[in-house]
Design a protein around this nucleic acid. Structure first.
Length: 436
RNA sequence: GGGCAGUUACCAGAGUGGCCAAAUGGGGCGGACUGUAAAUCCGCUGUCUUUCGACUUCGGUGGUUCGAAUCCACCACUGCCCA
């Protein structure tokens, strides 16, 4: 062992590392040998369907990070070409195609985020790279493509894919565009294999079929061998969709999902999810994770795992400073939730980060506003009717006091430190209104 | 091209002339309990509204009728079978 070159030892560990973390679903025979043999270039594709990635993309990003740590060379591919066609996998609703401007904006956004997680220092032999498949697809005509790529793959082969079979059996049908998708993606792999010596593709397990089409295309066109492995799709133990909340996706962009909200998302993980996720989403070593899990089991109420998970991830995505702010805000809004509002100083209120803040006219407060109008006017609810329903359900607190009186007037007596009103809807939705 | 089935709210899915803003389940939201949990129980879940009520929905357009998600015509889309 010790006599082997460094990268070989590390490479050995990559598959092992991913295995104990539960990040390995399918692996093509020979992949581990390839990784042991030499520094291997590998890629993962990302869809530029929005100008930010969300936490669903975090696992593929982490695969690239692990890969680079193990001494291999990661390529992050942004799907400019595939994004232009649009993935038609929705059903009755035709997906609106992205305009070129939008797409370019998205590509820039996604690239910017990927850059934060990988090391692009060109002096490294395994410096990360970013590519955009539009760069090669823009020069390929339809005829070129069907002769060049389509000739090598039979329809029978493509139909045998699970993703296709399911759609044929189901009642939603499948468009030609969608059917050819695996071939388009397969061509990406082929192109990277030829031009970047990229021999490995990784991705979520839903990508397995598409990835294999790529290795097949490479084999038939070049006789060469390419490899692949996938990671399991992240699920919640209760079967719910991972990464979605009532407010939508959890984004990696702080402007779309504040670090506080990001931190809260992980903090709210269920016990069993936290135990699974901490292996996948953090870089903590196995020994440490095991002891954290043991500590958590002995006293679940402390939520040791959730806290550690939230900390590590918020730090990874948003950095130390933002993590600290998120924790402070959490402290103010939850840890002292039973204490009266008076315990919050002006500074405390002013420095609360990441929750919804609005301004309200001082004149209206002086005159007094009924509670329903007040809530609606501050966009806390869409209408007075919605506000009323929530009040009747006992879901609204002002300055930590539950409001039950629908006729209540909001006036200057309600102001904290003469300028703030703290509103809670449910336990977790906080609004700070500044009156000036 | 021919035959059959279908299109209902976030999803699934009842509803075949008035009692339908539309059963039920899931999901979501809020409450109680708790650990900012799980399980359980309760409430809300078309829009607006001082619970009265008003308005807009059942693929689309037009029609029949005092009255249509429901009947008729045409159109669109989807699935299955035959060619």
């Amino acid at each position: 062992m010790q006599t082997k070159p460094r990268q070989k030892v590390l490479a050995m560990n990559l598959i092992k590392e991913l295995t104990w973390r539960g990040m390995l679903q399918d692996i093509m025979p020979g992949t581990e040998e390839q990784l042991n043999k030499e520094m291997t270039t590998a890629y993962v594709g990302f869809d530029p369907t929005a100008d930010s990635l969300h936490i669903g993309s975090l696992v593929p990003i982490l695969l690239l990070v692990h890969l680079q740590k193990a001494g291999h060379k990661p390529i992050a591919l942004v799907g400019g070409a595939t994004g232009m066609v649009g993935d038609p996998s929705g059903k009755s609703e035709e997906r609106n195609m992205l305009s070129e401007e939008e797409l370019n904006k998205n590509i820039i956004g996604v690239r910017g985020q990927l850059e934060k997680f990988l090391n692009f220092d060109v002096s490294l032999p395994n410096a990360a790279e970013l590519t955009n498949n539009y760069d090669w697809f823009k020069g390929i005509s339809f005829l070129d493509f069907i002769r060049d790529a389509g000739k090598h793959i039979t329809v029978n082969y493509m139909m045998a894919k699970d993703s296709v079979k399911k759609r044929l059996e189901g009642d939603s049908g499948m468009s030609f565009t969608e059917f050819t998708y695996q071939l388009v993606q397969g061509y990406d792999f082929y192109w990277l294999y030829n031009n970047k010596n990229c021999k490995l593709q990784m991705g979520g397990s839903d990508q397995w079929g598409n990835i294999v089409t790529g290795t097949e295309l490479i084999r038939r066109k070049t006789g060469g061998e390419a490899f692949a492995f996938t990671c399991p799709l992240i699920k919640k133990a209760d079967g719910g969709k991972f990464g979605k909340t009532e407010k939508g996706n959890i984004w990696l962009d702080a402007n779309k999902t504040t670090p506080y909200q990001f931190y809260q998302f992980w903090l709210n993980a269920s016990d069993s999810d936290a135990a699974t996720w901490i292996k996948i989403f953090t870089f903590l070593p196995e020994v440490e994770i095991n002891s954290l899990i043991a500590a958590h089991d002995s006293n679940p109420a402390d939520r040791i795992l959730q806290k550690k998970l939230a900390e590590e991830l918020t730090k990874f995505v948003h950095g130390d400073a933002e993590l600290e702010k998120a924790k402070e805000t959490t402290e103010k809004l939850f840890s002292n939730a039973k204490a009266s509002v008076d315990s919050l100083s002006v500074e405390d209120l002013e420095s609360i980060e990441g929750i919804v803040k609005t301004n309200y006219s001082v004149d209206k407060i002086n005159a007094g506003v009924d509670i329903l109008s007040f809530l609606a006017e501050n966009s806390i609810f869409e209408s007075k009717g919605a506000a009323r329903k929530m009040l009747q359900n006992g879901g609204v607190s002002i300055n930590r006091e539950k409001i039950t009186d629908l006729q209540m007037m909001v006036d200057k007596n309600k102001l904290l430190h003469n300028k703030f009103i703290l509103i809670q809807v449910g336990k977790k939705n906080n609004f700070l209104i500044t009156v000036d």
